[in-house]
Design a protein around this nucleic acid. Structure first.
Length: 452
RNA sequence: GGCGACGUGGCGGAGUGGCUACGCAGCGGCCUGCAAAGCCGUCUACACCGGUUCGAUUCCGGUCGUCGCCUCCA
């Protein structure tokens, strides 16, 4: 087992992973709010944490990955209302599409995908605990968290309360100020006319606020003080700051041991976001590029850095994917040469240093070069298979599909023409093959047919 | 304004106090009927200005620029 270092947002430092329960790692990552289909930016944390899980499993850990689905939220009410639909129906549909869209990444499902709407009981209990401990108060059916009652508030996002731009909508029209302090945030929102879902609670009918669901769901599935909490860097404040505060206040313990945040996907110079409108829907991109190319694109930069989205970036990823695929074809199934072992190890060492996928890919390239250089007869593919599996790119080694017989026949005829040095006919047959969607290559012992 | 991060060669993108990252593109060569694929070799760097140091792209300070958060947001 390698020592695994990860950048922790709270301390701002690289920290060694030391699981709460030896050999077992619990990860909670914030998933989408389901009011529309997800985009490439939303896919980044899904991919990062799915691959991190693979790497940790590779290193011998038993991993439990939780990615939640927020299915009760203002945006869902708004979107459903605009479409004249029930909010629960919209949320259910978008949840299903989210699963389908992320399934298409080919990385499998998280171990748990809790829904806010199915965790109401624990959420209510959580809020009650906060009220009992005087960290929360009821105001006209709402319940608010008393931010100044948490001494640690601001520590995760590294900001001081006095520096906070208390971004309350100054809208006097917003009604009477229910909060004791503008910094306080809602744990529970009283039911309002026009909202078509609500649940009973000791302080009145309503629904949970955004942040409390994560504290509750994470605790339900992983307990307090689990190993890694992740999500996009845009969630550090206020979402994760609030989660941390809630758990500290309710349980007297830290929610997680390590905070891990991925950088934003940028499109047209700024963060890809629904609110900006610069969206590339995941399912559309996947339909065009295929999963390996998109995954390659996402791991071509370090997870903490911003990553620019563009056609040319996808083309680069496509080229990388093709090169690996080509290289894989020249290998044979079986153990890799012992002299390539150091490179295999360097690959995983790179991932152990804050999940440095670009560095790992550089090592993988070296492995490919050495494998090609050493190529005498047959080089085993075991290392490559192992490395690609951790990156979620195992399908690059899938066997090429067999060409249909009529295609093979054309290729045979072309071989014949070449043997007779009738190159005009040979080139014509190559054109015919291309028209059928097959590329013919002259190989050492004959020809090779590859789908275009 | 506050907080956090970043500015690397034509492009993408790691990393390091002194030693080729890596990939794409380019260039030269090998292979080849042609092509594709592949192999070998190779050119373009560390925003700017100071400081520390025998030596800085790498540490410190400043300048300029960019991004994220401070409001829903992966």
């Amino acid at each position: 087992m390698r020592q695994i270092l990860l950048q922790d947002t709270l301390s701002g430092e690289l920290r060694a992973l030391q699981p709460r329960d030896p050999g077992r790692v619990g990860i909670y990552a914030c998933g989408p709010t389901v009011y529309s289909r997800i985009h490439v930016g939303n896919a980044r944390p899904f991919v990062v944490f799915s691959l991190l899980r693979r790497f940790l499993a590779h290193e011998g850990y038993e991993v439990s990955l939780v990615i939640n689905i927020t299915d009760v939220n203002d945006k869902i009410y708004d979107a459903a209302r605009a479409q004249g639909r029930a909010s629960a129906e919209l949320a259910a549909q978008m949840s299903e599409l989210y699963r389908r869209d992320t399934d298409a990444l080919g990385l499998g499902r998280p171990d748990h995908e809790p829904l806010a709407s199915e965790t109401i009981g624990p959420i209510v209990d959580y809020i009650q605990a906060l009220i009992d401990r005087r960290h929360a108060y009821v105001a006209a059916g709402d319940v608010y968290f008393r931010v100044r009652s948490d001494e640690g508030y601001g520590s995760l996002s590294h900001r001081l309360l006095e520096n906070m731009d208390q971004g309350e909508d100054t809208g006097e029209a917003a009604g009477p100020a229910l909060k004791e302090d503008p910094l306080d945030f809602a744990l529970w929102k009283a039911h309002k006319p026009g909202e078509d879902t609500s649940w009973p609670a000791p302080w009145g009918e309503g629904r949970p606020g955004w942040h409390i669901e994560c504290s509750a769901m994470a605790e339900q599935l992983l307990g307090v003080g689990f190993d890694i909490h992740g999500g996009g860097s845009d969630l550090v404040f206020p979402h994760h700051e609030n989660e941390a505060a809630q758990t500290r206040a309710a349980r007297g313990a830290e929610l997680t041991k390590l905070w891990m945040h991925n950088g934003m996907i940028q499109f047209t110079g700024e963060k890809m976001a629904k609110s900006v409108g610069n969206i590339a829907p995941l399912h559309e991109v996947l339909a065009n590029t295929g999963a390996p190319t998109l995954v390659m694109y996402l791991i071509s930069g370090h997870y903490r850095q911003p990553l620019a989205y563009s056609q040319s970036a996808l083309e680069q990823a496509q080229a990388n994917v093709n090169r690996i695929r080509e290289a894989g074809r020249r290998l044979t199934a079986g153990p890799a040469p012992a002299e390539l072992e150091p490179l295999r190890n360097s690959f995983f060492d790179a991932l152990a240093r804050d999940f440095n996928t670009p560095e790992a890919l550089a090592v993988l390239n070296e492995w490919l070069r050495e494998a090609a250089r050493a190529e005498r007869g047959a080089t085993g593919d075991s290392h490559l298979r192992e490395m690609l599996a951790v990156l979620g790119l195992e399908e690059l080694l899938a066997a090429v599909q067999q060409a249909p017989s009529e295609v093979r026949e054309l290729a045979e005829r072309r071989e014949q023409a070449r043997a007779e040095r009738d190159f005009a006919a040979a080139d014509d047959l190559r054109g015919q093959l291309a028209a059928l969607g097959w590329e013919v290559r002259d190989a050492a012992g004959g020809f090779e047919l590859l789908p275009l």
